[in-house]
Nucleic acid binder design. Structure first.
Lengths: 339, 339
DNA sequence: TTGAAAGCGCTACCAT
DNA sequence: ATGGTAGCGCTTTCAA
């Protein structure tokens, strides 16, 4: 183990005051070139590392932000986190990841005790107390929330991935390909108001096809958006005996599950039925067939989240940002009647 | 914004010394029930949160650990991180995720400045300086490294997922099923010494089948372990004209690619050829056919990593741990000659 | 069993 | 343009 030298040691070796050493490092006031050089030289000789803990104690800034999510195993979420992290490190911020299993209050307390500068919370609105979230603001911890959380406090920054627009893109595309009977596998039922895909699907079917009661299969509690749930829901769809030439799924994993079952039941994709997912996870490129889907721009989303946080931490500015998804067309869709 | 009360405020309200307040919270010396109650009551009334930054300044412990990886988009890696995080929060530790893009030294400096208690580094040995890693030890930051990194300093904890044993399980299983001609699609060529699957495959073929020169197709720079590379390598295998009744792939994605090409070339899986992957990613359950593979126990691995770190931070004990993978048998494999 | 007080390393205000 | 120094909130030794 090596002795950690402090700002005082550097000051002595450089023959300057401790204040000057500080100012050389944090550039908060001008220091002559001569003294700057002396300090830098001394610091290098001593292998000096500034102590962020000590500086945090006075500045009340830790340059640390938190990300609270339900589940780290969601690849989409991970891409968002990756974007946050990349943007953060460029500005000298570290990212604490927190994935809860119902004990979110532990994290909230920690956020306060640890003086995080900001937090992005992306857990289900039903699983966390509104007042717990807002408590963070009382302790000067900046907040970015998803717009779908529907917490409209003027002190919170909001980020929105516009899935309504995205769903419109999907249906418009399918309609242009000649599809009329389009079914939807929804991971949620109608009671989950935070989900905008479902109402958007209905609206889009009305707008582009004049269809007022499209075929929709709803997921049940506990709502799952997994390969498995895709299988289950598509089986329910097949059981109804209703036909469709295109199928939209709440996310890519469900689409994979649906494709598996459809394939095993003798349907050819896309000849007999076109399938569309949402998310554009890595695997979409390589599934068989590759999956037409909605790109969530997750990295971009992550960067936008950090920018909101940063701008609030540094300038105290609150803002909202909206990211538009993008339709990525691959092999799981084809014009109607092509089979 | 709310005023943050300090230990001093609590002490005054409770009519005790500040030291007593500290001891009530950190339980490092006995405090009478009476005073304890007074303190707790006062703390609750003031909505007091201990300031971890201040306490870190004196104790030199931040209860914060770092995880440095190449890439946050790897689902397998994410499962490991998830395991680390879950184990960490139970002991009151937070996890900083860091994913580098060649600027690893920035992270190393930050680890030191931020006084992280420990770090797990899982980046390619070629991409990070050995001395940068070991420097952390000089600053009392505990280390867990993958055994494959081959850094044998007595101060570093090592974790090992035994893929050699795993490969043995695969070959033993296939041999017992009557397979003799087993080919291997390796994502790396023989120059990559950190990969233990390749030598393990050769050793296993010798041990279980007395075979000294099994059929192996090698990936080339830039080494890829994707569905695409699986397709390319299996095509090379078919081009050689050599026959085999079973095929082992470096990972699941490559196995998916290989299955796709084999299927398109008229082979039935598993009747004509058995296929085995490695990793057990979510999709293996739902591929067509579902894939026999090696489960990496990623969550368990993550927990083991935290345990190593924790035991070093708290007790100063260095250890090594080995996690065994587990063979998961599904529909892509069958006894030889079953077709 | 409890209290007083000296630091931990840095920042930033007040001087000069 | 630079220095001196009080104080950030907590821990922990020393004393009682």
């Amino acid at each position: 183990m090596v002795t950690r030298f402090t700002r005082k040691d550097v000051a002595e070796l450089a023959g300057v005051s401790t204040a000057t050493v500080s100012y050389v490092f944090n550039k908060k006031r001008y220091v002559s070139q001569e003294l700057t050089n002396k300090v830098l030289f001394a610091a290098k000789r001593l292998n000096y590392y500034p102590d962020m803990i000590a500086s945090s104690l006075t500045t009340k800034k830790t340059h640390n932000i938190g990300v609270l999510v339900n589940d780290l195993s969601n690849p989409l979420q991970n891409a968002v986190i990756s974007g946050i992290q990349r943007a953060a490190i460029k500005k000298g911020y570290f990212v604490n990841i927190c994935a809860g299993e119902s004990n979110f209050d532990v994290y909230i307390d920690n956020f306060i005790s640890r003086h995080l500068d900001g937090v992005y919370i992306a857990v289900q609105a039903t699983e966390i107390q509104r007042e717990d979230i807002l408590k963070l603001l009382d302790y000067n911890i900046k907040l970015v929330l998803n717009k779908t959380m529907n917490i409209n406090d003027p002190r919170v920054n909001q980020i929105h991935l516009d899935l309504t627009a995205g769903m419109m893109m999907i249906i418009e595309y399918l309609a242009k390909q000649g599809h009329k009977d389009i079914a939807y596998l929804s991971c949620y039922d109608e009671s989950v108001l935070s989900d905008e895909r479902l109402p958007a699907f209905k609206a889009a079917m009305r707008k582009y096809l004049g269809c007022n009661d499209p075929v929709i299969v709803y997921g049940k509690v506990p709502y799952e958006s997994t390969i498995e749930s895709g299988k289950i829901l598509v089986e329910q769809l097949l059981d109804t005996g209703k036909t469709c030439s295109a199928l939209v799924c709440s996310n890519d994993l469900m689409a994979f599950g649906a494709m598996k079952v459809l394939h095993d039941s003798g349907y050819r994709i896309p000849e007999d039925i076109s399938v569309v997912g949402i998310d554009n996870i890595e695997l979409c490129k390589s599934s068989i067939p590759s999956l037409t889907t909605l790109d969530q721009k997750s990295e971009e989303l992550g960067m936008a989240i950090f920018d909101l946080l940063y701008n609030d931490i540094v300038n105290g500015e609150i803002a909202q940002k909206c990211i538009w998804p993008q339709l990525v067309i691959r092999d799981s869709t084809a014009p109607y009647g092509k089979g």
